[in-house]
Design a protein around this nucleic acid. Sequence first.
DNA 1: GGAGAGGGCGTTTTT
DNA 2: CGCCCTCTCC
Length: 714
Amino acid sequence: MSIDIDNELNEAQREAVLATEGPVLVIAGAGSGKTRTIVYRLAHLVEQGVDPAQILLLTFTRKAAQEMLSRAETILGRPLTGTSGGTFHSFAYATLRRNAADIGFDNGFTLMDRADSENICKEVKDALKLGKGDRSFPKKATLLDMITKSRNKELTIDAVMEREAYHLSPYLDAVTEIADGYARFKREHALVDYDDLLFLLDKLLAENEPLRNQLQARYRYIMVDEYQDTNLVQARIVKHLAGTKGNVMAVGDDAQSIYAFRGANVANILEFPKIFEGAKVIRLEQNYRSVQPILDLTNQILAGATTKFDKNLYSDLKSDVLPEVVHPLSDQTQARLVVDAVLEFQRKYMLHDIAVLFRAGYQSFPLEVALTRIGIDYQKFGGIRFHEAAHIKDVLSYLRLTLNPHDLLAWQRAMDHIKGVGPKTVTKIYQAIHTNDEKYLVKMTKKHDTLRELLNELNALRAMPPKPSAVLERILAFYQPILMEKYPDDYPKRQAGLEQLSQIAVSYSDMDQFLGDLSLDGDPDEEKRKENAVVLSTVHSAKGLEWSAVIIIDLVEDRFPSRRAMQRAEDLEEERRLMYVACTRAKQCLKLFVPSSVYNRASGMSDPTLPSPFVLELPGDVFQRVNESYGGGLERKQMQKTPGATPSPRHDYGDETASTSAASPKVDPSKLGFCKHKIFGKGKIIAQPEPNKFKVNFPGFGIKTIIGDYLELL
DNA sequence: GGAGAGGGCGTTTTT
DNA sequence: CGCCCTCTCC
């Protein structure tokens, strides 16, 4: 069978597929057939006689890589044996494991997840006696945020905190000390975090020339997807693997860069032609995904961006239906209206072809309740993950200990069920084991029967042949009573999760690989896309996917955009791109939900909301507005034509925000005057709650509390 | 040093 | 409202 490049691809796509030699950068607008291009390029290479084992495909999720490879196999009509595909992290893990001794881990290492890393931060903080009794001392999650941000952006802790956490500046020295302690702790216990995977690989490739040459020779063709979301160290890895003259293709879209929070750097994609001399740049601009009215709306979202994008997507797909902006009275009725909309869509589309998107995982909870009540199955992406559940981590801790006896975190978990033994005692036992302090161990095992049983069990596990399914089976038998005692309320459900884990283990022959995959994207639920379930997803997890009908909920200020992104201009810009990504997922129908009030669990009541600025600024002619009537029904507003070609922002909402000023403190406004903000423009200062904080009423955006540094006084 | 009780506080996004 | 952290008592 021969692939039909001429008929299946447009000219730009064809060019990208055929340009196999030398560096190539593909700037691919949303829905422009980017995946298709990669798939055809894979197939084309193999058809040209390239050994599939010489191809490396780096993507953002493992799922994406698998899907591309299997689609290439389909059009090729034969399997791609030996092609390496996965995320940077999974590729790094596999390479590092083969060369562990070279990076200073003679006895291997254990990959930690986010919770492990946070716990170390806490441990180190306590050990250094920092922040004792200080309630405003940064929490472990914040500490880790600073640490990984500093690493991913390759800036000092000082620089990160100055830019992003100014209010924590009194703790700068403490955080720096904790960061050092965190690094030390990892080294002492043969632990590695997600960031280390990348940095260790970079170091390995930089220092080990024979290995670098070997890998360059092996991977003659490299393709990197979602290049706009790579960070500096990932770019260096690509450079090491490809060499400056290598056959490397980077694909991405600067308008869809949504991972700056984790160090992604758009400069990578923009400067690709500089780093790889003579790179061919190809732009894919025709959109094959969405009907034109949806593109009219998404183009408007980009038009409002501070950084201008040279992009105007167009499509041949016509539709008479405008995207809708729906205004439910509350987030509760929003859930009900979304269910109604799903039922309506279901008459036309399969459930799995309908998606509800949101900014943060918790925002779908009311909807999940409503869907369950009415009996619609759903599949959720984003939020809590399989391997993060406590019982899974418990079981895996035994497995980790068979491989790495220095894994103190695993010891702590494994001993959690022993009454009378807390973290301090665990550390002592750990030390006794590693210094052969028989006396202490005998004393402790006499005192705690459960400890003796545990140590015996671990010895037995280590004596077994390292086959994941067999070892896991034994662990589960041992863990069963612990599970029931620890989780009396819901252990049957957790039991099911453990059985699922056993299922996964069957397909592995290598323990390290099994553990690595679980931490690196191994959510078993995501493996198979359920046929008859509506998709609920965070926007981040929806990246690269598409659905016939897309609903976006909670488009209100403080939720989308996130409250944390309102202070800094660049954060708000990223929220805008996130909104762009969300809307461009839709093929046929798009509905934006803007609830007038949302439940606030702090106060226990519903708070009124302000519509998201991304909705407010849309010109009235790119959507149809729908209100929930007080009787519970929907009222369609007559569409208003905007005069002229220029968008007339906010005309549909003019006086909506005025009512909120009633809640402002009673300060004589005349004294405070006006100011200017980068994003919100000119506003009236109505209060100064703190010396460097101002409450400002921005016309069209409502009242904001803003740090003085971001305001220009007029 | 551990377990249990009381208080503050605040929900991003992911490998 | 629920989590997490700290304080207190054993």
